[in-house]
Design a protein around this nucleic acid. Structure first.
Lengths: 221, 221
DNA sequence: TAGATTGTTAATCGATTAACAATC
DNA sequence: TAGATTGTTAATCGATTAACAATC
């Protein structure tokens, strides 16, 4: 079978789903049974028909005049994103970034379950950080065999990123959530998602400089 | 003048620019004067013509057989993203996430300069974290008047996010980099960029569950 | 000159938006 | 029934890709 580097469709929709999910949880907590596309659109700053298109992908049907049922929507979003059943992960590198991720409560609520952390620093090994035990990275392969995780969260110094990636891939990890600035080299069947503060900052700073330039232009005019 | 909620064009291009920038810095450090679109494409897993289209936006011209000049490319990317001149910022909330951002070296290299941090915890106030002094959030307005920053980095507990945002907006901050899960309500002229672990995780988990489903389907077949 | 690479125009593809019919 | 909202088809818009001419 050809290993097509298959492009995912619907990326913009997938990006919006977590926001819908959060909004729907609020509505559910408020005891609402139904929600309209115009309400969701209003909250997210988009137009209602785009919400309906996204919901079409989820295969949830609504009722004219009433809206969409909140609970089924939540369940279908979770199913679509793989948030339905729990996803086991290990975290590598318990530095500032690693510790911040372990401290994050939200991730547990969407099904991501960090079962172990690894570090090379003897002062960290065998401690517990935010409820997760830190193990010696030297025994990574042994533990991965036991734990059978789906995802590895990579928060180590750049220097060790590719080497550890190779070990993770060899151990059969399916996905790597990469918080290092390194472009990882992985085989096609391994999925990587890179988290990059500078990329995100680029989106902010690019818009910011454009607005500033515009404001200056207005002053001159 | 109509305050058009102007949609930024070229968002995919802007997302790629930081990657080009990093690659070009590597080439520059290696003493290379020129780089080809096929090299950049290969490194980033895209096709060369897309690189050339991005470079067209930057208004850098190349030479057939030779490639594009590395230094001018770097300068134009920096100019396009507003990384050319330094951008001053304050950080609010020195918790796990705030501390991780203060520890990040990369951001300084792209021109983001955190000049002060604020917190409400008396144990943190007046300490220095990664070279940045922590001030009492009670004197936020006074300090903002003095500092005249462009950006605020928001890393406080959800409960305080909107209240602090209102104070930041009133103080004339132009952009807010939002690391809280809260959808902030701001006037049109204030630019916000939300950083959300769950959104990023959604992109990973959605692809991961699709591959898993596919693998199962193959097994059956 | 031949060949590699840039630059540009046209085609394609996907996502968003508009228009409006269907339905409760 | 009237009106609000969903659902669907067609139009538009932007980004990517293909094709190829221009250039060193």
């Amino acid at each position: 079978m050809k290993r097509h580097l298959r492009k995912m469709h619907n990326v913009p929709t997938v990006r919006r789903l977590p926001d819908y999910h959060a909004l729907l949880q609020e509505r559910a907590a408020a005891g609402e049974q139904f929600v309209s596309s115009s309400y969701l659109a209003e909250q997210m700053g988009i137009i209602p028909v785009l919400v309906r298109k996204d919901i079409e992908v989820l295969q949830v049907t609504g009722t004219p005049r009433i809206g969409y049922p909140v609970e089924p929507l939540l369940r279908r979003i979770e199913h679509f994103l793989g948030w339905g059943e729990r996803m086991d992960a290990v975290l590598l590198g318990v530095g500032q970034v690693g510790a911040a991720i372990l401290a994050n409560r939200q991730l547990a609520t969407v099904g991501l379950n960090v079962v172990a952390a690894f570090d090379a620093d003897p002062r960290k090994i065998s401690t517990r950080i935010h409820g997760v035990t830190v193990l010696d990275v030297a025994i990574l392969e042994d533990e991965l065999r036991k734990l059978q995780v789906d995802v590895a969260i990579l928060c180590v110094p750049s220097l060790y990123a590719q080497g550890l990636t190779d070990r993770l891939v060899a151990a059969g990890v399916g996905g790597i959530w990469n918080f290092t600035p390194v472009r990882l080299d992985v085989p096609d069947q391994v999925i990587t998602q890179k988290e990059d503060l500078t990329t995100s900052y680029a989106l902010l700073s690019a818009r910011l400089t454009r607005t500033r330039a515009e404001t200056c232009a207005e002053k001159v005019a």
